[in-house]
């Protein structure tokens, strides 16, 4: 395999040398829509406090993979899986697992910002906590909301208008609001499904900067169409193609010395 010359900056070796605990793991995971296989036989490990990027052309199954991790996949028409998904070693598809509880530990941010339009900024951030009715989550709600907004780098922009509609925010701010909403209940893992696809360059940059800070507290899995973005923000990169997991490894290695010809072809822009 010859060295690849990508058309953009090669990421620095951001991965700390210290080994990390595996938070999320899939074993021979296959995701189906009815009889159609969207994704076959994927075994992956996601270490704590890292940003893991999933890349690949449209329809390669990377989004489906993401949605199996918090059991959103099964909400789609005909969605089912075989194989296992382990969160801290526990099978999340075990019969007695409550998907609602799982989703409180594995949060998700979507492609388009999805603030609740009838709620204020404050209520949007508190929505996930209010769902958890009757728990200690409602004690100190103000502090939790402020902490989440600070973590999402939005506090300074909205602190004077917490009671106004979330629709008054720009697209990028709305997406950071959705991130704040996702992290407010303190999940362990955050899944992001092309979170910057609908944002302008500035909004995209702010989200990317945010990911660097968020990984100190969370484990992040991000699906992206944007190869440069994956290179910039991630510690590990996994390449999906036609429903197969082709290659996974430290981002620097995937971008500079991929072992698979298809990975190299995709990274250098020959298809996709």
């Amino acid at each position: 395999m010859t060295a690849v010359a990508p058309a953009f900056r090669i990421p620095p070796a951001t991965t700390p040398a210290t080994p990390s605990r595996t938070v999320l793991e899939t074993e021979r995971l296959t995701a189906m829509y009815g009889k159609v296989t969207a994704l076959a036989n994927v075994s992956l490990r996601f270490d704590a406090n890292r940003v893991h990027a999933l890349i690949g052309p449209s329809g390669c199954g990377k989004s489906t993979f993401l949605r199996t991790l918090n059991r959103m996949h099964e909400l789609a028409e005909g969605g089912w899986i075989t194989g296992r998904v382990l969160l801290d070693g526990e099978d999340v598809y075990a019969p007695r697992v409550n998907p609602m509880q799982l989703r409180k530990r594995v949060g998700m941010v979507f492609q388009k910002p999805t603030p609740f339009p009838t709620m204020s900024i404050y209520d949007n951030v508190a929505a996930g906590l209010r769902v958890d009715r009757g728990r200690a989550a409602r004690v100190g709600l103000d502090e939790t909301v402020e902490r989440a907004l600070r973590s999402a780098a939005l506090w300074d922009e909205v602190k004077d208008r917490l009671r106004t509609s979330a629709l008054g925010l720009s697209g990028g701010q709305q997406q950071r609001l959705c991130i704040a909403r996702t992290i407010a209940p303190r999940p362990e893992v955050i899944l992001l499904d092309e979170p910057t696809a609908s944002l302008d360059p500035l909004g995209t940059q702010r989200i990317e900067e945010l990911l660097f800070r968020l990984k100190e507290a969370f484990t992040i899995v991000i699906v992206t169409h944007n190869l440069q973005q994956a290179a910039r923000v991630s510690d590990t990169t996994t390449f999906f193609y036609l429903g197969q997991m082709v290659e996974t490894g430290p981002t620097r290695q995937i971008y500079t010395a991929p072992t698979e010809a298809r990975t190299e072809a995709y990274i250098t822009g020959r298809f996709g």
């Binding site: 509880q101 996930g128 769902v131 958890d132």
Partner: peptide, 9 residues
């Protein structure tokens, strides 16, 4: 989906 992803029933 946004609500379900927050762990809502």
């Amino acid at each position: 989906e946004a609500a379900l992803a927050l762990g809502a029933t």
